[in-house]
Design a protein around this nucleic acid. Structure first.
Lengths: 208, 208
DNA sequence: CGTATGCTCAAACGATCGTTTGAACCGGCC
DNA sequence: GGCCGGTTCAAACGATCGTTTGAGCATACG
């Protein structure tokens, strides 16, 4: 069953909000346009009118969030990249903090689950979309990791980054869960999460 | 398009084999019973006749592999649990090695991708099936981790195990990929994979 | 006022889904 | 031979999917 939460805003924004929620809960295939438009309080045909197709809607859900998220990541990286006093923690914080801040509000947290789903599902067209549009972000971070870990071979570095990515994706996919005790403790929990993630990633990247 | 690989064996076994392949490639919802039965070279109605429903087929795909896999994990754990000379590496090897050996043959490797998908998709009924049938395995490993890492609080330990699980799942989901250069180098690559995973996991679990 | 434009609406389209049906087939046993 | 439980088969069922259609409505502009 889908609760019709007719949140305010334009038709496009209502669709994007409902899509984020339902994609996180049921996956891209699992959420139908009828559930989606009912939850958004708009007509069924509105999706194809405003976005062209369901696939284009999926891409737009990603674009709306990832443009801002990755811009903030790159800005944070640019402030520290190449500097002699920069540490591994600094780089990891530049990557993780924007994601954690995005997930401070509920819809942002839902999006992190959508993102984790996208990584898990090996859908080729979606992976290609993410790679062509946001591949340069990971490339810049990888270059900085390589600078800070010169003792690692390229292959070794890629292995470790891949494993860290898996751990982060897995952890962040749990953000949009239903249960939580209170908003205040949730925010504290998120700060604690950042600490765990960063210390874990540092250990995984820089172990001898 | 689905290539009709009519591999030998009973109807049930042919269905299970084709299901493993198609579930890994397209997910549980994405693979239809018509694609599946065509690939297996059996009639469409055979799935419901032999398994009752598509959901029951999914469970059977897991049960066939996980019964053997987790039995070997627990046997390996039993040989070292509680011993004073046991190291963190030993416990992690007891967990990872059986999975790597399972993925030595192609169908086993495909199953690891199916398993990774199951973790990614937050399908409640499937997660509950896995939890009730195989939850005791992770519980026994957790107990041994707790013994070897007494300095960690329960919460800290759960966090680290969760992150390690995410990294391993992410890494193993890439096993069933198509490209590989030769069988010999692939086996060597898998041994290298085990080394990377275990050293990474040790660092992530035991870092100060 | 008339009309053009952007948007919403109910309804329908064809395709595909999981499942069910009832007849056909097949081995072994009385 | 005759029957029977287990299995396979083509065909159909109702449901749901993404998408399209064409009429209807609103606002802005001449």
């Amino acid at each position: 069953m889908v609760s019709p939460v007719n949140s305010s805003g334009s038709t496009k924004e209502r669709i994007l909000g409902a899509a984020e929620l339902l994609f996180a809960q049921r996956g891209f295939d699992g959420a139908s346009l009828r559930q989606l438009t009912t939850a958004a309080g708009v007509n069924l045909a509105a999706v194809n009118y405003h976005f062209g197709s369901k696939d284009k809607l999926v891409e737009e859900v990603f674009r709306r969030r990832l443009d801002a998220l990755n811009a903030r990541r790159l800005a944070a990286l640019a402030r520290i990249a190449g500097a002699p006093e920069t540490t591994l923690e600094n780089v990891l914080e530049a990557f993780i903090r924007p994601a954690l801040e995005l997930s401070h509000d509920e819809s942002g947290a839902l999006f992190m689950r959508v993102l984790a789903r996208a990584f898990a599902e090996h859908d080729d067209s979606l992976r290609q979309f993410l790679s062509t549009n946001y591949g340069h972000v990971m490339r810049q971070f990888t270059a900085e990791f390589a600078r800070l870990l010169p003792q690692l071979s390229k292959e070794e570095l890629y292995w470790r980054i891949d494993l860290v990515t898996g751990a982060l994706t897995h952890a962040m996919s749990g953000f949009g869960m239903i249960q939580r005790k209170s908003d205040v403790s949730e925010r504290a929990h998120r700060e604690q999460t950042a600490q765990h993630l960063i210390r874990f990633a540092v250990a995984g990247l820089s172990h001898p």
